[in-house]
Amino acid sequence: MKHLVFAAGVLSATAALAADKPELVVYTYDSFVSDWGPGPAVEAAFEEICNCDLKLVGAGDGAALLARIKLEGARSDADVVLGLDTNLTEAAAQTGLFAPHEVSANFAVPSDWVSPLFTPYDWGYFAFVHNADQDVPSNFRDLADSDLKLVIQDPRSSTPGLGLLLWVKAAYGDEAAQIWDGLADNIVTVTKGWSEAYGLFLEGEADMVLSYTTSPAYHLIAEGDDSKAAAPFEEGHYMQIEVAGKLASSDQPELADQFLEFMVSDAFQSIIPTTNWMYPAVIPAGGLPDGFDTLIRPQASLLLPSAKVPAIRDAALAEWLSALGQ
């Protein structure tokens, strides 16, 4: 109890301290705010220019973030939500909680995706990651015919899992169910989230894991380890574009706009590649870090229109469940 009182005291004290500075509350996913994510550097960089207090609040992953915003509704403390992806933006837009933005930038996102409500800050391609010395197929059909073992994430609980679902759907349309039938015997198991799947792969439980084309960059840049590679697929790779939006209920609309502008600026964008391990939405002045040039560049970028995702998603999930649920 004492601690509670203490905590309350500290809270009111910081509130008092910050009274002369406006506070901008940004909801984001948990790995963004973690000590190893972009959060700490982003906070420092923005507070340098905004004369404000930037408060990053973590809430699970992208889907949990959207659920949280829906729960809080217009009463939310958040001014900005950062970390939805294009698979969630339609549902987010339908809440009516988001306000239009006026951000423009020289985006380097290989897609014509635009939204009046949301601004991209980074992007990546889903890919199967494997040990570099492993021969791997170059499309889903060959993968299904191979003996390779895969570990993937459950689309119901994981963002990459949903990405794979839509990847297969975008590439194969009505034939997606067949692809899943073929893949069923390759899939060792399905995990709750990315961390479990990647951990299993590193333990040698599978030959390939669903991750991002940028994953090998982490091993190369942070660990000096070039033993991991992403497999290029001929169908093209499904994209994940991560976006942020301003809440209509924000009590700091100007500051929120300033943050969104900052988000596509060099200061923010140069932090992204080696903390979030994704491609920055705008190429920073210094270019991409060394090592990113070694990554595969897919021949085609796949992305289902955001507005169609909710309907496609439910049908694709049913196919997925029936193929793997036997």
Binding site: D154, V188, T189, V190, T191, E196, W320, G325
Partner: peptide, 12 residues
């Protein structure tokens, strides 16, 4: 949840 799903081998 996580145990059952991961070791259960899939959505079944």
């Amino acid at each position: 949840f996580a145990v059952a799903l991961t070791l259960g081998g899939g959505p079944r």
